[in-house]
């Protein structure tokens, strides 16, 4: 293990929103970090706080309030940093790719100029001509056909997948140290998604950046990530290397997520759903947030009354479950029961 400081380190971050119905804790003591050249996937269902965490960490949150926690980027404290200095990092050292590329691009500026502007903002001494050449190069690299022609076109002349390529070009233009991709392929079709995932992989290899990939799609996770953080109701419930998450999950929620996936690669006799629905964050259970839906808990009092902390489950992974040692045998028995019944 080499003691290299992680590129992004979020520790103990808590974010709250004030709503007319009361305070909502969208992110509850979340910690994770990501190293250079590594892809961390943050996975979870709607409202689990996976996007809010990273937006808050980068100071991009509109309404919410950071209650506690620390975020460092390359060793520098991001939360205490003056807004001006942080803005200079964004788009340069630290870039984002969002779900909807159409809204990320300026509709009244040519695509090429937007890429060139990104270069110029961070290197004001660069000549216009150089910026233009470099922008065309970037467009070619992300697979925009006829980049010199497309340079002069507007976003509406591009398809959604093509726009996302441009956004990725802008994200890697200044050789960032961190790329945050927030559901980058959710709005596009599967064949386009395949292209974009390949592209993101190439981009990471080219730049050596750390990547935080926020997604709800476990297929995407398996494809791109080295490590995975699973979030539920504003908390990280399990974090482990990708093979381990899929092979031997150490939290009942992860087990549940995997067994309710319909599979493309094989027939599944029956899906085992997780009962109930994700909690309303205004009304999270007092003990373990997953307890009301957890079939392993069987309403034990520890689960109902005490928040399980995120603790090492084995040398490589952490899990927030009081009965982490039971997870494996329980998961096996659960699968067995269903197959027997089928």
């Amino acid at each position: 293990m080499v003691a290299v400081a992680p590129v992004l380190d979020i520790s103990d971050l808590t974010v709250e929103f004030d709503t007319p119905e009361g305070t909502v804790r969208a992110v509850d003591h979340v910690s994770y970090s990501v190293d250079a050249g590594e892809t961390l996937a943050v996975v979870g269902e709607t409202g689990c706080g996976k996007s809010v965490t990273v937006l808050a960490a980068l100071g991009l949150l509109g309404a919410g309030r950071i209650v506690s926690g620390a975020v460092t980027f390359g060793g520098a404290d991001l939360l205490d940093m003056p807004a001006k200095k942080r803005r200079r990092l964004l788009g340069h050292d630290l870039t984002m790719v969002f779900q909807n590329p159409m809204t990320a691009l300026n509709p009244v500026m040519t695509v090429g100029r937007q890429v060139a502007e990104t270069l110029l903002v961070h290197e004001p001494k660069m000549s216009r001509g150089t910026a233009r050449d470099r922008a065309i190069e970037l467009l070619a690299m992300v697979g925009v056909p006829q980049p010199d022609v497309r340079y002069n076109q507007y976003p509406h002349e591009f398809s959604g997948g093509m726009c996302q390529r441009v956004v990725i070009a802008m994200a890697i233009a200044n050789k960032p140290r961190l790329i945050v991709a927030d559901e980058p392929t959710t709005a596009v079709d599967v064949t386009i998604q395949a292209q974009l995932l390949d592209l993101l992989r190439v981009a990471r290899e080219e730049t050596g950046a750390a990547v935080v990939m926020i997604t709800h799609d476990l297929g995407v996770v398996a494809e791109v990530a080295e490590r995975v953080a699973v979030m539920y109701a504003g908390r990280v419930v399990e974090m482990a290397p990708v093979e381990q998450i899929f092979r031997s999950p150490r939290h009942p929620y992860t087990v549940g997520l995997l067994s309710c996936l319909p599979r493309l690669d094989r027939d599944v006799s029956e899906l085992i759903p997780i009962p109930g629905a994700p909690p309303d964050l205004r009304d999270v259970a007092r003990g373990c947030p997953f307890e009301p839906r957890c079939e392993m808990s069987a309403a034990r009092s520890a689960c109902q009354n005490t928040r399980p902390p995120l603790m090492p489950a084995d040398p490589n992974s952490v899990s927030a479950c009081h009965f982490v040692d039971e997870v494996e045998s329980w998961a096996r028995a659960r699968r067995g029961n269903v197959e027997e019944a089928a």
Binding site: T191, Q193, D217, G219, V221, A222, V242, F246, R263, L264
Partner: peptide
Amino acid sequence: QALLSAVPVPVPGA
């Protein structure tokens, strides 16, 4: 064939 091959499968390393 292309469509099926494009779908990411939840199996790491596949």
